[in-house]
C-alpha cells in the first residue's frame, strides 16, 4: 500500500507545472523515505531530478518500494482539477496498474477521485557524478526567469559568464545583442540577495529553449541556485517548499 497526502495541493500543482513542458512521462520511485523522479527530456539534452521527502507530507505510507511510470500530461490534467486549498491524496496498491488521486475540499462534503493508468517504462537511470562546481550562484528566481525570457528574444543561446565581479548573461543574434550583469549583494540569505561562490571563472552557453522550460519552476521558491563548471552540465536547482527539491541538468552548447 502506498499513500501520500498533502493538505494543500498547491505545491504538487506547481511541481507538475515545472515539469509538464519538459517531460512526457517519468518513473516515480516511491520508498519509505519519499518519492524520487529522474527523467530526461525526449531529446536527451536535459535531465530532471526531483525529490519529495516523506516527512514533508502530512501523511505518508509506503509498505513496499514502488516504481510507477506516469504520463506527465495526464497527471497534470488531473492536478488541474484540484483547487490550491484542496487536500490531495495519492494512493496505490502493491504492484499497481493504476494510481488514484483524491481531492477533498476543506469545509465541503465533496470528494473528487481520479484514477490514472500507469505506463510500463524502460528503466533508464543515469549516474550523476559528485561534482565540485567552479561557481555556485544563488539569485532571486524571478530575476533569473526575467533574464531568461528577456534574453531569449535576441538569440537561441544564453552565455553565462561568472567571474569575481559577478554573473553576466548574454545573448546575441541577427537583431543585436543583450547583456545583463548581476553583482553580488552585500547581504546574503535574503530572498532578493545574489551570492556568488567562485573557485574559478566559467563561461558556458546554453539553449534558451531549455532554460525557458526550467523557469516554469519559479513559483516553487524565491531563490534559484545555479551551479557551473566549464564543460559540464549546468545545474539549476529550486527548492520545493520544505519538502524537497527539483534539479534541472542542462548539457552545454559547444562551438561547431
Amino acid at each position: 500500500m502506498f499513500e501520500a497526502r498533502l493538505t494543500q495541493s498547491a505545491i504538487l500543482k506547481k511541481v507538475l507545472d515545472a515539469i509538464k513542458d519538459l517531460l512526457t512521462e517519468a518513473t516515480f520511485e516511491c520508498t519509505d523515505s519519499g518519492i524520487q523522479v529522474q527523467a530526461m527530456d525526449n531529446a536527451h539534452v536535459s535531465l530532471v531530478s526531483m525529490n519529495l521527502r516523506s516527512d514533508g507530507f502530512d501523511k505518508y505510507r509506503c509498505d513496499r518500494n514502488l516504481s510507477m511510470g506516469m504520463s506527465i500530461a495526464v497527471m497534470s490534467k488531473i492536478l488541474k482539477c484540484a483547487t490550491t486549498n484542496d487536500t490531495v491524496t495519492m494512493r496505490a496498491v502493491d504492484n499497481p496498474d493504476t494510481i488514484e488521486f483524491m481531492f477533498d475540499t476543506p469545509g465541503k462534503d465533496v470528494q473528487a477521485q481520479y484514477e490514472m493508468k500507469l505506463i510500463n517504462m524502460d528503466q533508464e537511470h543515469l549516474g550523476i557524478p559528485e561534482t565540485v562546481y567552479s561557481c555556485v550562484v544563488k539569485m532571486p528566481s524571478q530575476e533569473f526567469a526575467r533574464i531568461v525570457r528577456d534574453l531569449s528574444q535576441f538569440g537561441e543561446n544564453i552565455t553565462i559568464a561568472c567571474t569575481k565581479e559577478g554573473i553576466k548573461f548574454s545573448a546575441a543574434g541577427d537583431t543585436g545583442t543583450a547583456n545583463v550583469k548581476l553583482a553580488q549583494t552585500a547581504d546574503s540569505g535574503e530572498s532578493d540577495s545574489v551570492t556568488i561562490e567562485m573557485q574559478e571563472s566559467v563561461k558556458l552557453s546554453f539553449s534558451c529553449r531549455y532554460l525557458n522550460f526550467f523557469i516554469k519552476a519559479t513559483p516553487l521558491c524565491e531563490q534559484v541556485q545555479l551551479s557551473l563548471s566549464n564543460d559540464v552540465p549546468l545545474v539549476c536547482e529550486f527548492n520545493i517548499g520544505e519538502i524537497g527539491h527539483i534539479k534541472y541538468y542542462l548539457a552545454p552548447k559547444i562551438e561547431d
Binding site: M40, H44, S46, L47, E124, L126, S205, S207, A251, K253
Partner: peptide
Amino acid sequence: MAQRSITSFFKKI
C-alpha cells in the same frame, strides 16, 4: 553552436 547530449556526461547505470 552544437548541442551536446546529457548522456555524454552522465552514463547509464
